[in-house]
Structures are given as structure tokens and as C-alpha cells.
Amino acid sequence: MTAKPKAFLFDLNGTMIDDMEFHAKAWFSILNDDLNAGLSYADVKREMYGKNRELLHRIFGNERFTPEYEDELSLEKERRYQKEYTSSLCLIDGLTEFLAKAKAQKIKMAIGSAAIPFNINFVLDGLNIRHYMEAIVSADDVEISKPDPETFVKGAEILGVKPAECVVFEDAPKGVEAAQNANMPCVVLTTMHQKEDFSAYKNIIAFVKDYNDPILQTLF
């Protein structure tokens, strides 16, 4: 990148909060204890991308459950996740200061997540950071989730910023792929994946373990 970005688009889980193991444990419980899928923990983690309904369809097919039961399963999974994670809820190191600096420099910010509003609200209100975000794009706001670019494209449109003027923050390969498909550069948080998991993507401008990394200051 040469010009300074005008907007930051943040994935949520694993990118703003380090909570993906809690999601994996909740899904493992739902899929195996409730639905008898017989999946290993590694299998469950591989399927953890996109909307909750999309995950269920990948594992069980499109016709196994009614939409109403899929919604019920989705909410129950999030209740189990929130129950276990609430006491650990916190922003990834350095993000509090990073958000404040971005706002002070009038960089627009948005959430672009495959999470349902129930979980996004849990984080934004639980950590009192909603005031930083000028747009929120959730699972309910898109037809197809990541790696389709719709989540990030819609976020940029709401902010009134061109895709190339945005920087996406992601932790998952499918999210980085969505940013690449949207023609957006991406910073990767290595909370759940190592660098080698992202070798297929050409839009990555930095790998960081948290928001204290000095390379992020070059974005301002």
C-alpha cells in the first residue's frame, strides 16, 4: 500500500477477541453430543467458517433440518459459547489503543463478520466498543458468507469508501480470501492459524500476533 487507508474493516471472532477455541468447543458439543456427527475436534475446527447455517449444511446437507431448527441450533451453540467465554471476554492486546487512535485520525471502522447479531452485540456491548463502529455487517446482512466478498464489499459501501482504500483485519484463511475477492489488503492476526496457512493469498500486508506490533503504526 502507498496511500493511507480511509477505513478499517474488522472480522470479530479471533480478530478483535481471541475466542475461537471457545467456539470450537461449543460446536464440538452441538455437533457430536446433540447431533451425533462423530467428528474429531480437528474436523470441527476445519468447518468453522461462514454462517452457522452454512456449517450445518456442509456437514449434514441442505435438507436435514428445518430452517427453524437450524436457527434453534445456532442460538444454542452461541449460548454455550457465551456461557464459557464471558469471564474471559477482552480485546486482543493493543486493540483498545488502536481503535482510539484510528477514531482520533478519522479512519472509518466497521465490523464484517459471519457471526449472528446475538454474538456481535455480546462483544460490542460487553466491551463498550460499539461507538467506534460506523457499520456492522453480520451473517444476517449477506446472502453468502466468506469467502464470498459480500461482507466486506457491503461494509465499504456503507462507509462510503472504495475497496482499495480499506484494510481488512482477519484471522482465518476464508476471511482473507473474502478480502482478496473484494480487492482489499489484509492484516492477519495469528490467533488460530500460522503464516503457512495463508500461502495462497497475495493481499496480505502483515502478520501480527496482536495490535501492539509496530508495523501497524504504518497504517496511520
Rank of each mutant, 00 (worst) to 15 (best):
K6S: 12
F8I: 04
F8C: 01
N13W: 01
F22Q: 09
K25P: 00
K25A: 11
A26S: 11
F28V: 00
F28Y: 15
S29R: 12
D34I: 07
D34C: 08
N36G: 07
Y41H: 10
K45W: 12
K45A: 03
R46Y: 07
M48Q: 07
N52K: 05
R53S: 15
E54H: 06
E54W: 01
L55H: 00
L56R: 01
L56T: 01
H57G: 00
R64H: 13
T66S: 15
E68D: 14
E70T: 03
L73A: 04
L73D: 08
R80E: 07
R80Q: 13
Q82Y: 11
E84S: 14
Y85R: 07
S87A: 15
L89S: 11
L89E: 09
C90Q: 15
D93T: 15
K106Q: 13
I107P: 14
I107Y: 07
I107A: 04
I111E: 06
I111S: 08
S113Y: 13
A114Q: 06
A114R: 09
I116A: 05
P117A: 02
P117D: 03
N121K: 10
L124R: 03
G126M: 07
I129Q: 04
R130G: 02
E134K: 11
A135I: 05
I136F: 07
S138Y: 05
D140S: 13
D141M: 06
S145N: 12
S145V: 12
K146F: 11
K154F: 08
G155N: 10
K162D: 14
P163L: 07
C166A: 11
F169V: 09
F169G: 01
D171L: 08
D171T: 12
A172D: 02
A172S: 13
P173V: 06
G175P: 05
G175C: 04
V176I: 14
E177Y: 04
A179E: 11
A179G: 15
Q180R: 09
N181G: 13
A182V: 08
A182Y: 11
T190W: 01
T191C: 09
M192E: 12
Q194K: 14
D197H: 12
D197I: 01
F198V: 07
A200W: 00
A200P: 03
A206G: 01
F207D: 01
V208D: 03
V208Q: 02
D210V: 05
Y211R: 09
I215A: 12
I215V: 15
L216V: 05
Q217P: 00
Q217A: 13
L219P: 05
L219D: 02
F220Q: 07
